[in-house]
């Protein structure tokens, strides 16, 4: 049974590690996450029906581990990260005037029409950097939403927030990401 997992380990360990390292910026954490992924894979192999490719399956497990990691980080959130969140809330509020309409400067960069952006390395790097700068629990919400196949209800439960709270966080996180890309992406 485990031979299959061993084969997959030899095939995909580096790729999984690369991704985990990229998401956590720590060698030790990335190694631990890859190890947990394969140990979970051993346990869950019976449930793997082969509907997806092994690599896709392993990545899905790893992503859940990464989210767990973010969640632990968000939970141990200290006064600093609470302050960071308040700062970010103020910042997203400042995009709008007292009537809650956009404050426009007239030289907004239009980057929404560029479909090829998805393949643009610089763009993805900027986005990544921007996600990194989000307050811990905003990051957790975004990563859970886009990197896992968890339902919204599951995410809310795990984060310990109400549904409207969750959408509020995703909303603010998206606003921050938009502004961050506006400011940091150099074409």
């Amino acid at each position: 049974m485990n031979e299959k997992i061993e084969d997959w380990f030899n095939l995909y360990a580096d790729e999984l590690y690369g991704w985990a390292y990229h998401k956590t910026a720590s060698k030790e954490t990335a190694e631990d996450l890859v190890q947990d992924t394969f140990l979970s894979a051993v346990k869950g192999l019976r449930n793997f029906k082969g509907n997806s490719k092994p690599k896709t399956w392993l990545f899905a497990i790893l992503n859940n581990k990464i989210i767990d990691h973010y969640r632990k980080k968000a939970k141990s959130a200290n006064v600093d990260s609470k302050a960071a969140e308040i700062r970010s809330i103020k910042q997203t509020d400042s995009f709008f005037d007292s009537h809650r309409n956009w404050i426009l400067t007239g030289n907004e960069v239009a980057w929404e029409e560029e479909v090829h952006l998805l393949d643009d390395h610089e763009f993805n790097k900027t986005l990544d950097h921007c996600v990194d700068k989000l307050p811990e629990n905003w990051k957790l919400a975004v990563v859970s939403k886009y990197l896992s196949d968890k339902t919204t209800d599951q995410i809310c439960q795990e984060m310990g927030v109400t549904l409207s709270n969750y959408w509020q966080i995703v909303h603010r996180a998206k606003l921050s990401l938009k502004k961050c890309i506006d400011h940091n992406w150099i074409r």
Partner: peptide, 18 residues
């Protein structure tokens, strides 16, 4: 879209595991 796609993008500076 970019966020959901990211996970299957190969990393440019592919790290090898120790």
């Amino acid at each position: 879209k970019a966020l959901s796609r990211m996970m299957f993008e190969p990393q440019e500076d592919q790290k090898k595991m120790d």
